[in-house]
Write a protein that binds this DNA or RNA. Structure first.
Length: 500
RNA sequence: GGCGGCGUAGCCAAGAGGUAAGGCCAGGGUCUGCAAAACCCUCAUACGCCGGUUCGAGUCCGGCCGCCGCCUCCA
């Protein structure tokens, strides 16, 4: 597989250090709030990379941090009149919930910054001993100019940085150089603090990632990931402090996903142009959100819009309609034992190429959009085959369905059972937008709908179409869609957002 | 100013120097009591503009135009 490496600014063949094992680290949340749909892109990108590496047979050791001590957490605690710890705990749990809503698999290791304080102190001491850090009034700073490779990841040089920084921020006169960054911050009154050789304080902004990566995965990672906005300063600083300490590369591949735009600008909390990921999932459904991202290359910037999400929703529906049809057909009758016709042979030969096509796209720097093109083509061609070649060998249809399932797995798509989707969606929404009472009602709603559908069916049988149509229209207004098929009437929920 | 990226049909989007994937919309059809849904078909002489290299260029090179990100809060 080839991956674009930010460090070399090239696509390179990815080979892990140890055969068959991938050590991967990706930046996780700072738990001061729920995460946005823009944050979701990063989490999802590395979820898919991880899933695909596993699909290819690698054992993936994946670490993601939870930063549970930071300025914004402390501020939020002050604003709410609760402790920073309470805020962090609350949003850590919220992170787990929202992650599950998106179908993101938990990493192998998920350390929290506050659990790592002794190791962080040890790490900083190592830097002090090597002359890469210095203490001022209980703060500890990293001596940027001492690390000669500083800027190699972000492509910056020290002179330009110094020139740029001088106009933008007040240089702290206690620092030897304006570019030096904090490894350890002295505690202010009332703030959470830990004992250290330099007095009471807390970790700086970048240190926890370096320490967690080393503690869980070792000195050199195969892949270090995150959003492009983290390249500088976060990852540059991580790289500097880790490599200064160990003398070894922190990561062989640096992988960065593109940003999410809204209204022509980067989506960001401070700009107010954001939406919470969970709200978008509630409105459009989990797989539509995943497809929305995976239909675009992970490194490109992309626009967020409900229109685009609704498009993804329609595309997801199409695949499930296909699976429903295929799996119903597959169950119907045994496969014919007769020799295959030329059309069947041709289709069979095509099916045999699909998996390789899919992998070829994914191997090209995780081209999920190209890979999805392969899957949609499979859907279309199978539908055509089903329609134009009759009778046909059903085992070929089954194989097509299996391919969608199998190749959908590394994308985290198309894994649900078509027949229970309405139910899953319903209870999922009830959980998101309402409390326990609604959840009980939600459990009965399905039966109520079935009852109405049944009554309407009897009316139709008697030719009383006016009343039957009224039931259908009223249910439709409620977001419940009826379809009269040969074997009876099926129904499904229509998620909001499609009306746009 | 420095560094990085982007500009492909109505919208979104992939693209391997060799003759434009895919999704959504739209139009036409099949099916249906009528619908809806589903499915099929159609839908870029063309890839921001101008030059160049090449037998051949969205794809490589140069210049220009437009948009975005980063340059110590950020996924």
């Amino acid at each position: 597989m080839r991956l674009y490496n930010t460090l070399t600014r090239r696509e390179e063949e990815f080979v892990p250090q140890e055969a068959g094992v991938v050590r991967m680290y990706a930046c996780g949340p700072t738990v001061h709030d729920r995460f946005t749909i823009a944050n979701a892109r990063a989490f999802l990108t590395f979820d898919v990379l991880r899933r695909y590496l596993e699909f290819k047979g690698y054992k993936v050791l994946y670490t993601q941090n939870i930063t549970d001590i930071e300025d914004r957490i402390i501020k939020k605690g002050e604003a709410l009149g609760s402790s920073a710890q309470e805020v962090a705990e609350r949003y850590t749990q919220a992170f787990f919930e929202d992650r599950e809503l998106l179908g993101i698999l938990p990493p192998t290791y998920q350390p929290r910054a506050t659990e790592m304080v002794p190791k962080i102190i040890e790490f900083i001491q190592g830097l002090l001993e090597r002359g890469f850090a210095y203490v001022v009034d209980g703060d500890v700073y990293f001596r940027v100019r001492r690390f000669k490779d500083y800027g190699k990841l972000s492509g910056k040089n020290l002179e330009e940085l110094a020139a740029g920084a001088s106009g933008r921020v007040e240089p702290d006169p206690r620092k030897e150089d304006p570019l030096d960054f904090a490894l350890w911050k002295v505690a202010k009154p009332g703030e959470p603090a830990w004992d250290s050789p330099w007095g009471k304080g807390r970790p700086g902004w970048h240190i926890e990632c370096s320490v967690m990566a080393q503690a869980t995965l070792g000195t050199t990672l195969d892949i270090h990931g995150g959003g492009q906005d983290l390249i500088f300063p976060h990852h540059e600083n991580e790289l500097a402090q880790s490599e200064a300490l160990t003398g070894r590369p922190l990561a062989r591949f640096w992988v960065h996903n593109g940003l999410v735009m809204a209204g022509g600008q980067e989506m960001h909390k401070s700009l107010g142009n954001f939406e919470y990921a969970r709200d978008v999932v509630a409105r459009h459904g989990r797989e539509a959100v995943r497809l929305f991202f995976l239909l675009r290359h992970y490194r490109k910037p992309m626009d967020f819009s409900h229109k685009a999400l609704a498009e993804a929703q329609a595309a997801v529906e199409r695949v499930y309609n296909f699976l429903e049809e295929i799996e119903a057909q597959g169950a119907l009758a045994p496969t014919r034992a007769e020799p295959r016709s030329p059309a069947e042979q041709e289709f069979s030969a095509y099916l045999a190429t699909v998996r390789a096509e899919f992998e070829r796209e994914m191997d090209a720097d995780l081209n999920t959009a190209g890979a999805l093109g392969v899957l949609f083509e499979l859907v279309r061609r199978t539908n055509t085959f089903m329609q134009e070649t009759a009778p046909h060998d059903r085992s070929l249809l089954r194989r097509a369905g299996e391919l969608i399932r199998e190749l959908g797995r590394p994308l985290g798509l198309f894994q649900e059972e078509p027949k229970v989707r309405a139910k899953v969606t319903l209870s999922g929404r009830a959980r998101i937008i309402a409390g326990a009472e609604e959840e009980i009602i939600a459990g009965n709603v399905e039966e109520l709908i079935n009852l109405l559908v049944e009554v309407r069916g009897e009316l139709r049988a008697k030719g009383e179409f006016a009343l039957a149509d009224r039931i259908r229209a009223r249910l439709n207004e409620l977001g419940i869609e009826l379809r009269d098929k040969e074997g009876g009437t099926r129904w499904r929920l229509r998620l909001k957002g499609k009306e746009q």
